[in-house]
């Protein structure tokens, strides 16, 4: 069985760190990783989230006015 990973990308490092900080404060699991090459060869950071937390993550992001770029499912 192939494990599914969900990655959230950001336009800036500042957005990524703001996201990490908010997730820690909210107790939402996940961690920052280098941008996976499957998404982009650009530099930058991405948030590696557990698939079952994505909906709540995005809901909280809207409530907290957190910026992100894309949500990508990787298999």
């Amino acid at each position: 069985m192939v494990e599914t990973r969900v990655v959230i990308t950001f336009q800036t490092t500042t957005h990524a760190i703001a996201w990490e900080r908010a997730c820690k404060e909210e107790g939402l699991p996940g961690r920052l990783i280098p941008m996976p090459v499957e998404i982009s060869a650009h530099c930058g950071l991405a948030w590696l989230a557990a698939p079952d937390t994505v909906d709540i993550l995005l809901e909280r992001a809207r409530e907290l006015d957190l910026s992100y770029d894309r949500v990508v499912e990787l298999k």
């Binding site: 950001f10 336009q11 800036t12 490092t13 500042t14 957005h15 060869a41 650009h42 530099c43 930058g44």
Partner: peptide, 16 residues
């Protein structure tokens, strides 16, 4: 900038 390496333009988002 640490982001958008292959773009010819510098990122436009603040603060970067």
């Amino acid at each position: 900038s640490g982001v958008q390496t292959f773009s010819q333009e510098h990122p436009q988002e603040m603060p970067e």
